[in-house]
Simulated assay, not measured.
Amino acid sequence: MRLKMKFLWTLQLGIIIISGCSKKSVVSSSSSEYREDLAAVRPRYDYVEPSFEKSETPTAPKANNIPKTNPDRPLYVNKKLETVLDTLAKHNKSIRFINGFRIQIYVGNVRQEADGAKSYIYQAFPDLNPYVSYSQPTYRVKVGDFMYRSDAEQYLELIREQYSSALILADRVDIKRSLMLNPSADSN
Score class of each variant (00 low, 15 high):
S30C: 08
G108L: 06
R177Y: 11
L158R: 13
D72N: 12
Y148E: 10
F101S: 03
R96L: 14
S51G: 08
P130R: 03
N129A: 04
N65C: 12
K90F: 07
M5I: 13
E113P: 13
P126L: 04
N64G: 06
Y120S: 15
G20Q: 05
D127L: 09
P130M: 04
S51W: 00
S32E: 04
D174H: 05
P137A: 02
R2A: 15
Q162C: 10
I159C: 02
L81A: 13
P50V: 05
V141P: 08
Y131G: 01
E157Y: 00
Y120Q: 11
G116D: 11
V77F: 15
K93R: 11
R2L: 15
L88K: 11
P74C: 09
G144N: 03
G100T: 07
D127T: 09
R2I: 14
P126G: 01
V26F: 08
S22D: 08
A63C: 05
E33K: 02
L128C: 01
L179G: 06
S19W: 15
G144I: 04
D37Q: 05
F52Q: 15
S31W: 00
E161Q: 03
I103D: 06
I168F: 15
S119L: 14
I66A: 06
A60V: 05
L11P: 08
L88N: 12
F97T: 09
V107S: 10
S164Y: 14
T57G: 01
E113L: 13
T69C: 10
L179E: 12
K79W: 01
I15R: 08
P126M: 05
P58A: 05
F125R: 03
N109T: 08
S135P: 06
Y163L: 04
R149P: 14
E161Y: 11
A185T: 12
Y45M: 02
D145P: 04
P74N: 07
Q154A: 08
N182F: 00
Y139R: 00
A60W: 04
L81I: 14
E153A: 06
T69M: 10
K79G: 07
K23W: 10
V107N: 09
N99P: 01
A166H: 09
G144Q: 02
P130G: 07
D72Q: 10
A152C: 02
